[in-house]
Simulated assay, not measured.
Amino acid sequence: MPDTITMINLVWTAMIAVMMTATFTLYQGKSEAPQFNYTQLTGQYNEQPYY
């Protein structure tokens, strides 16, 4: 029977494989460019000298 470390490694690898498969499956139909439905605000930083 495999030792404890080998079993933990197998379970961890299986979990990573399941998560990667789920990620690829969920994002398969998404478009490449994000669609923003809000106005993007811009800001400007003006540095004022202290003296």
Rank of each mutant, 00 (worst) to 15 (best):
M1C: 06
M1G: 07
M1R: 08
M1N: 05
M1D: 04
M1T: 06
P2W: 06
P2M: 06
P2L: 08
D3L: 14
D3W: 13
D3Y: 15
T6A: 06
T6N: 05
T6W: 05
T6S: 07
M7S: 01
M7C: 07
I8M: 09
N9M: 03
N9S: 03
N9A: 04
L10G: 01
L10H: 04
V11W: 04
V11D: 00
W12V: 02
W12I: 03
W12T: 09
T13S: 13
T13Y: 07
M15E: 02
M15P: 01
I16R: 07
I16P: 02
A17R: 02
A17K: 06
A17V: 07
V18K: 04
V18F: 11
M20K: 02
M20N: 02
M20L: 12
T21W: 11
T21N: 05
A22Y: 07
A22D: 01
T23A: 15
F24L: 08
T25L: 11
T25Q: 08
L26H: 08
Y27C: 03
Q28A: 11
Q28M: 08
G29V: 02
G29Q: 09
G29H: 08
G29S: 09
K30A: 12
K30C: 12
K30T: 14
S31I: 06
E32R: 15
E32G: 12
P34K: 12
P34D: 07
Q35Y: 10
Q35P: 00
F36K: 08
F36R: 08
N37M: 05
N37V: 01
N37C: 03
N37F: 10
Y38K: 12
Y38F: 10
Y38Q: 11
T39C: 00
T39G: 00
T39P: 00
T39M: 00
Q40E: 13
Q40H: 12
L41T: 13
L41Q: 14
T42Y: 14
G43C: 04
G43L: 00
Q44D: 05
Q44A: 09
Q44S: 09
Y45S: 14
Y45P: 01
N46T: 15
N46I: 15
N46G: 01
N46K: 15
N46C: 02
N46A: 06
E47M: 11
E47V: 13
Q48A: 04
Y50H: 01
Y50K: 10
Y51Q: 04
Y51T: 06
Y51W: 09
